[in-house]
Structures are given as structure tokens and as C-alpha cells.
């Protein structure tokens, strides 16, 4: 899961140019991914992992790094599986 998000950020959001991000970089805080980038990232997560990300879940706790994004997706998937 982390790999897919890392690839999306590096290839799609950053266009394959410049320094490549890793799963633990704080990409939404260090300016690598701006506001519209966040929108595209959320769209990607929704499509790739087949879940709806409500606006109130788009917080720094869930989106600080790609690792925390993947953790958020897993939690959502687990709770969907148990309900």
C-alpha cells in the first residue's frame, strides 16, 4: 500500500522530477504536496483502495506521512470488514 502511494506521489504529483519522497517524509507539511496535491492524493486513495475519505478525516494525524495515510486506510478497511 505504501509503495502504491509513494509511486503516485513521485510519478503523478511530482511528475517524476526532483527529489523522490519516502514513506516517512512529512510531504504535506514540508511543501512537497500542496492543497490541490492533497485533493489529488485523496482522489487516488479513494479510487485505488475503494473507500470514501470524508473531509473530516483529512487531518494531519491521518495525512502527515505516507505511512500514516496507509495506516488510516488499513483502519478504515478493517472497520469496514468487521461491520
Amino acid at each position: 500500500m505504501e509503495h502504491a502511494i509513494v509511486r503516485f506521489v513521485n510519478e503523478e504529483l511530482l511528475g517524476g522530477n526532483g527529489p523522490r519522497v519516502t514513506a516517512d517524509d512529512e510531504i504535506v507539511l514540508d511543501g512537497t504536496v500542496d492543497s490541490l496535491g492533497v485533493t489529488r492524493l485523496v482522489d487516488f486513495i479513494e479510487t485505488e483502495f475503494k473507500l470514501a475519505v470524508p473531509a473530516q478525516d483529512v487531518t494531519i494525524d491521518n495525512f502527515r506521512t505516507i505511512t500514516t495515510m496507509a495506516a488510516y486506510v488499513r483502519t478504515r478497511q478493517e472497520s469496514a470488514a468487521t461491520t
Binding site: 492543497s35 473531509a55 473530516q56 478525516d57 483529512v58 487531518t59 494525524d61
Partner: peptide
């Protein structure tokens, strides 16, 4: 309205 720190996403929505 919504959690702390979700204001930008609520605004975008």
C-alpha cells in the same frame, strides 16, 4: 464544526 484541523478540508468540500 468537525474535528480540529479539518477546517481546510471542510472548506474545500
Amino acid at each position: 464544526l468537525g474535528p480540529e484541523g479539518a477546517g481546510a478540508s471542510i472548506f474545500t468540500n
